[in-house]
Every structure is written in C-alpha cells, then in structure tokens.
Design a protein around this nucleic acid. Structure first.
Length: 152
DNA sequence: GCCAACGTTGGC
DNA sequence: GCCAACGTTGGC
C-alpha cells in the first residue's frame, strides 16, 4: 500500500481542521507532477500531513485516501484563487482526491528531525528548494515516520 | 519580510 | 525549442 506526503499551510488548512471535518477535498494543487501523484492514489493509501510555512514546519499526522481521481471543482470557479480559465470543462486539467482523518501524531516531527534522520533521495521534502506539494514516501521511510510520530 | 529555488509563460 | 522574465513556494 503506497504512502504519500501532502503539504498544507496550517493557516490555510491544518490537521486540526481535518480532524474537525473528518474528510476533505484536497483542492488547489496546480503543479503537474503533484497532480500526477494525486491521480495515481488509490483508496486506502495513507498520506502524511505536512505543515508548511509555519514554525517549525513538519509532519503533524496521518490521513487516508477516500475517493480517488476527483475533478477539482475550483478550477472552474471564476471567484476561486485556483481558477484555471484554460482548463477545458470537457477534459478537466486538475484532478485530486478526498482524504479522511486518521490521527494526529502525539509527537510532531519537525523538519529539523526529518533532515537529521532521512536522506533527500528517500524523503523528498528534505530536498533543498523542494516545492513539490504532493510526493510519494517509500514504505521503509513511512514505517520510520510512523514510529517517530507515534512515539512519545 | 526576505530571498533562494524553481516551475511556468511567452516572445522570438 | 530556447531562455529571460515573472510569479510562487516555503524556510528562515
């Protein structure tokens, strides 16, 4: 079962928001590589919730893919900041998934720890200048992350 | 708030 | 198809 890592700015949408909502549509991804990863997600896949643009950035918890391959409705909403006028309605550009809340880790894993623990090729979020917001996580790395997050 | 990294756009 | 300009991301 594949593992993923998805970034969100907690000021915009945090794991506490997902805990409250139970399920969310992961909208607004406008990068083709990230979209391709979203497209390849299957129901039941697990995804780490990464808090970006906060102090400190890091992994806050875990979620699970519910509905795969959902058309991102915001691409057709002119009032949305994610509006994409070039996306053909009969062949939408942007697909995503819905995700359900699984857990908030008792131990937040700050970026600093991620850097000390994992190599950039194993966990892309520690690559310098990395801006990709959706990325795969190798299973062996995911297992270590679960240990770190669930430990106290 | 700054700015390096980097993806995208558009002129040629 | 190249690449400069531009806009955005995200750590600090």
């Amino acid at each position: 079962m594949p593992y993923w890592l998805l970034k969100s700015e907690p000021d915009v949408y945090s794991i506490a928001d997902l805990q409250r909502d139970r399920e969310t549509l992961w909208d607004g991804v406008r990068n083709y590589q990230a979209r391709n990863f979203l497209k390849s997600m299957q129901p039941g896949d697990l995804a780490f919730f990464y808090h970006s643009n906060t102090t400190p950035p890091g992994i806050a918890g875990l979620m699970q893919v519910a509905q795969p391959n959902v058309v991102d409705p915001t691409q057709f909403e002119a009032s949305s900041k994610y509006y994409d006028p070039k996306s053909p309605p009969d062949n939408p550009r942007w697909h995503t998934v819905t995700l359900t809340y699984v857990e908030t880790f008792p131990t937040y894993i700050p970026l600093d720890t991620l850097r000390q623990t994992f190599a950039p090729d194993d966990l892309w979020v520690v690559r310098q200048g990395n801006r990709l917001s959706v990325m795969p996580v190798p299973e062996a790395i995911a297992e270590k992350l679960l240990e770190l997050g669930r430990g106290r």
